[in-house]
């Protein structure tokens, strides 16, 4: 897959593998991200993997677009693009009230009973596509087609951190109190912002995610938060 290079201002290169979202393009992004992490160009500040492209930002005092592009082209010739197979991460979810205010609506929209919606969510094959929107907001692909629902017409305010939300094929575990137009189907006690200085975010882009169902009493025990208080 031959990417396009585009200079961004005086301090970054955008390496784009495709115009449209595809598994192949995302696999190439992750492969290049790993290759650059192993062998970073002089003066690089960071890389940012997204759906079809990788941003490589650098210090313009130390290097320039041409030098960075030359380095990345060398990485590309040796690139081994394989199906994404990151680390598997487990995220616990409680699907009980009051943590799942939109479960009923998803059930109505899909014609599936609540239990079937929950099981369909648990059966999803989730991968971390990219982070965005806010710190720790990891976009996961893999919501099974039978429970894919569109965004709401208007966002809901003050959705608590830890909410498990879905829209179309994507799923996300929120990390902050934020508005969202996605459907809230559960609450997770699993911290995405880990507070571990060596590994501050639970996922890396490309990781696989498995959701594990917990009941309200387990949630309360894990968080010290009583759902019905």
């Amino acid at each position: 897959m031959q990417p396009q290079f585009k200079a961004i201002a005086d301090h970054a290169l955008l390496v784009t593998f495709a115009d449209e979202i595809s598994e192949a393009a995302h696999a190439a992004v992750i492969a290049l991200d790993h290759a650059i992490a192993t062998n970073p160009p002089e003066g690089m500040i960071e890389t940012v993997p997204a759906l079809v492209n990788l941003l490589v930002s650098f210090d313009p005092i130390l290097t320039d677009h041409i030098a960075v592009e030359t380095h990345i082209r060398a990485c590309l010739t040796a690139l081994n693009i394989q199906k994404v197979s990151g680390v598997q991460r487990v995220v616990q979810v409680c699907y009980e009230p009051p943590f799942a205010p939109d479960l009923e609506a998803v059930s109505n929209a899909t014609g599936l009973p609540r239990e079937a919606v929950i099981n369909a969510h648990l059966a999803g094959d989730f991968h971390v596509l990219m982070y965005g929107f806010a710190p720790g907001y990891a976009y996961l692909s893999g919501v099974t087609p039978e429970i894919q629902v569109p965004r709401k017409l208007a966002p809901v305010r003050d959705v608590p951190a830890g909410s498990v939300i879905i829209a179309g094929p994507q799923c996300l575990v929120t990390t902050l109190m934020m508005p969202t137009g996605w459907s809230i189907i559960g609450r997770s006690p699993t911290p995405i912002l880990t507070n571990d200085p060596d590994h501050p975010f639970l996922f890396d882009v490309g990781d696989r995610v498995a959701f594990e169902r917990i009941d309200a009493s387990t949630f309360a025990r894990l968080t010290g938060e009583d759902a019905h208080a």
């Binding site: 201002a9 970054a12 115009d19 492209n53 930002s57 976009y139």
Partner: peptide
Amino acid sequence: SIPSEPIVRGS
């Protein structure tokens, strides 16, 4: 819209 992609300060 385009596939969501990285933003920088100054975009």
